[in-house]
Design a protein around this nucleic acid. Sequence first.
DNA 1: GCCCACTACTCGGTGATACCGTATAGTGGT
DNA 2: ACCACTATACGGTATCACCGAGTAGTGGGC
Lengths: 113, 113
Amino acid sequence: MDDLTEMLKGTLEGCVLEIISGEETYGYAITRRLHELGFTDVIEGTVYTILLRLERNGLVQVTKRPSGVGPPRKFYALNDAGRGELAAFWTKWQYVSSRIDKLRIDKLKEGGR
Amino acid sequence: MDDLTEMLKGTLEGCVLEIISGEETYGYAITRRLHELGFTDVIEGTVYTILLRLERNGLVQVTKRPSGVGPPRKFYALNDAGRGELAAFWTKWQYVSSRIDKLRIDKLKEGGR
DNA sequence: GCCCACTACTCGGTGATACCGTATAGTGGT
DNA sequence: ACCACTATACGGTATCACCGAGTAGTGGGC
């Protein structure tokens, strides 16, 4: 799949919040999870900028823990503000995606005139 | 619905392409159509920016016609490149939205542990 | 005749976001 | 000693939607 960066703007952060909400985790693992999900072109640097932003905006609780296989990891967990932000994200996503899907379905219904 | 601007990045242009593909139309009418579709906060200036970009990128054919109720209108129609871009947009949208929905559904399935 | 509302388009500048490249650093294998 | 893998940080860039102000044409109320 070719370049998705523009379409991911405004949604990638929500995806990261969702991943964090599932379990306390860290940047390197989040990147691999995104790759598994199909977002194969998302690069580590992007994930770290999002995580630093989440921290700066007070949406996460951060805990540094030693790794055993490399440098220490920064584990992220959502706080109340983060859970609120995640809920707001899904509300927005539902709103936007349903309307875009409708625009597409209406077109398909015409039967390609 | 509060601010959707970030989430619309990369998709609003596709919506405009879709609207144009339905019928030859012009900026002011496209703006009203977007409002009808639920994107009530999209402002005229944004639509015109997109239209100028489409023109600059050679995705549309432009015809100026007198209006009768105001200044002349610039009517936009997709050319072959524009139809290709629209098809690519829907492919991307399908790819991204299905994966994001999956992320959400997987979470709901857990039953809010 | 004059202002105003509605229609219709343009353009310079702003803010947010994902991406790129590079740097730093810990662990373990050869 | 070198390299691969793990793990994070940071300055700079491109793109996009948005903002604000400006320009114009038509028609209605006073």
